[in-house]
Amino acid sequence: MNILLDGITRLIKVIGDVCSLLLLAIMAVVAYEVTARYVFNSPTSWAWLINKQLFGVYVMVAGGYALVHNSHIRIEMLYQHFPGTIKKVIRWFTLVAAFCFLGALLWKSWQMGMDAWRIKEVAMGAFRLPLYPLKLFIPFGTLLFLLGCIVVVFRKK
């Protein structure tokens, strides 16, 4: 079982590390847009749309990545004073809530992504960027987060 959990953790970390490079791309697009707009008085029609897509991918991976790194925020000033049994109850309640939310998100985002794929959905306006790749990435990122929850549940601490 530990081999499977370690494999899931490594997968999430590798995908998270690769997606962290998207921040460099986002910064480059913003720098280009600011330069084009304010230096050359020639704003782009595509920069905001590209950045929304890149940031969407980044955010979808960040949840699972933060989970396997134990980086989610807790209110430590309260949590640290609870006895061990209360901490366990809170931990399990939080994980059940996460499974319910992420399960529903996976289900609905899969339907939305497949609908977008079927019609080859594109953005409105002059720059008709395909939206279906991002919409298909939402269930993928949600699945990574769910796998991270499974690691948290079964990992012996």
Rank of each mutant, 00 (worst) to 15 (best):
L5Q: 04
M124D: 15
V18K: 01
D115W: 03
G125S: 08
L23M: 14
V30N: 08
V34D: 13
V89P: 09
W107K: 01
V122R: 08
S45I: 14
W107L: 14
G7R: 09
V30W: 14
P133V: 07
G84K: 15
Y38Q: 05
V61H: 03
E33R: 02
I150L: 15
R37W: 07
V18W: 11
R91M: 04
K120G: 11
G56M: 01
I15S: 07
T94R: 05
W92L: 12
Y79P: 02
G84C: 14
Y58H: 13
I12N: 09
V96G: 08
K108Q: 13
S45E: 10
F154M: 05
V14S: 08
G141A: 03
I150A: 12
Y79N: 02
A62Y: 12
L54W: 10
P133Q: 06
Q111K: 06
W92M: 13
I86Y: 12
I86N: 08
S109I: 05
K87V: 02
E121T: 09
V34W: 13
A28H: 08
F154A: 01
A36S: 10
A97G: 11
F55P: 07
R10A: 11
V89I: 14
F93A: 13
W117G: 01
F145A: 06
G103K: 05
G84S: 15
L106T: 03
L11D: 09
L4Q: 10
I12V: 12
K156Y: 05
K88Q: 13
W117E: 09
E121G: 08
I50D: 05
G103F: 09
V151A: 07
L106G: 13
G84E: 15
G7L: 14
T9M: 03
Y132H: 11
I50A: 14
E76R: 13
I3W: 12
A62T: 11
M112C: 02
P133S: 06
V68H: 03
L131P: 03
L105H: 01
T44S: 10
F137M: 06
A28V: 14
I75S: 01
I73N: 02
Y79S: 04
K108M: 10
V96P: 02
V18P: 00
G16W: 05
S71L: 00
I15A: 01
V122D: 08
L54I: 00
S71C: 07
K88Y: 09
Y58C: 00
G63T: 05
Y38E: 00
F40L: 12
L102E: 07
P133I: 11
E121D: 13
G148C: 01
A116F: 01
V152R: 14
V59R: 05
L146D: 05
F55H: 11
T85N: 10
D17R: 09
L78Y: 09
L147F: 08
R155H: 11
S45W: 06
I86P: 08
A97R: 04
T35M: 15
R74W: 03
A66R: 01
A104H: 09
F154D: 00
F137W: 12
K157D: 14
P139R: 04
I3S: 15
G64E: 01
V68E: 02
V30C: 09
H72Q: 00
C19F: 10
L144A: 05
V122C: 04
